[in-house]
Design a binder for these strands. Structure first.
Length: 244
DNA sequence: AGTAGTGTTCGGCC
DNA sequence: TGGCCGAACACTAC
């Protein structure tokens, strides 16, 4: 569930509830007084990277699916719902996710130009952020939500393989052209991910993530826990260049 | 059947 | 004060 494109899919799937009144609300969220939701009208659904935002007239609900979260539309699971919203035309259920109330205007909370799926995504700003973090490893840079909001661990492995950059490369040592490729291909992969996820062929298209053999030169991939983010990393040390 | 992981936050420790 | 690290959360595909 978690990565940005999956949240875009969710946003598309809930459009039937835009402009609808919440006729009942329940759930086991501790961060939110669910009673205040009943009677409110949903003005919009938005997303910022992995954040799913339910907009109401005076505040928004932020849903983050973390690693295990899930949702059901017009059906429910046997697990307790973290948040259940009932409408006259259906229902929306969220499970095992983080739910938060946001009372500040969303434009003050979120920098939309950092969201890789947003039309306002700003390539130049992303490059500038990378350049201001010269000591950061490439594998951590892609996971940094302030630079690439919506990118996750699959992105990291696939994008670094696509652009032939070793995950332990220092961002400050990447030539300008590679820096631009990093940004361009992270965004490109987001839209490939979206398309493949909708076709249920995402895994089939993985070139590096979870793989044992490099499809380019057929040597073994390395599998290691790398970077400050300490996440699984799959890479080929023959075709992915180390900039250090 | 057990394990590991599409993620983030928090608190303890040095 | 701050960086680093592990735990917690809680589900399911393999």
């Amino acid at each position: 569930m978690p990565e940005g494109p999956s949240i875009v899919i969710l946003k598309e799937a809930v459009q039937q509830f835009k402009g609808k009144k919440i006729i009942a609300a329940s759930g086991n969220s501790k961060k939110l007084n669910i009673d205040i939701l009943t009677g409110q009208v949903i003005t919009d659904f938005k997303s910022w990277g992995k954040h799913f935002l339910i907009c109401l007239p005076n505040f928004a609900i932020r849903v983050h699916f973390m690693l295990f979260g899930s949702y059901r539309i017009n059906e429910y699971s046997d697990k307790p719902a973290r948040l259940h919203l009932q409408f006259d035309n259906g229902e929306l259920n969220f499970y095992a996710c983080s739910v938060m109330l946001i009372e500040q205007p969303l434009n003050e909370v979120y920098d939309w130009s950092a969201d890789i799926m947003n039309p306002e995504f700003d390539h130049k700003k992303a490059v500038a952020k990378l350049k201001s973090n010269p000591d950061m490893l490439a594998c951590d840079a892609i996971l940094d939500q302030h630079i690439f909001s919506g990118a996750g661990n699959i992105f990291k492995n696939e994008v670094l393989f696509r652009i032939r950059i070793h995950p332990e490369s220092l961002v400050g040592k990447l030539p300008d052209q590679k820096l631009h490729e990093l940004v361009t291909e992270t965004v490109n992969y987001a839209f490939d991910f979206l398309k493949w996820k909708k076709e249920f062929t995402l895994k089939k298209h993985w070139l590096a993530h979870t793989k044992t053999i490099c499809p380019r030169d057929e040597v073994r991939f390395h599998k290691a826990i790398l970077g400050k983010t300490r996440r699984r990393t799959f890479f080929c040390d023959r075709c992915q260049e180390l900039y250090k």
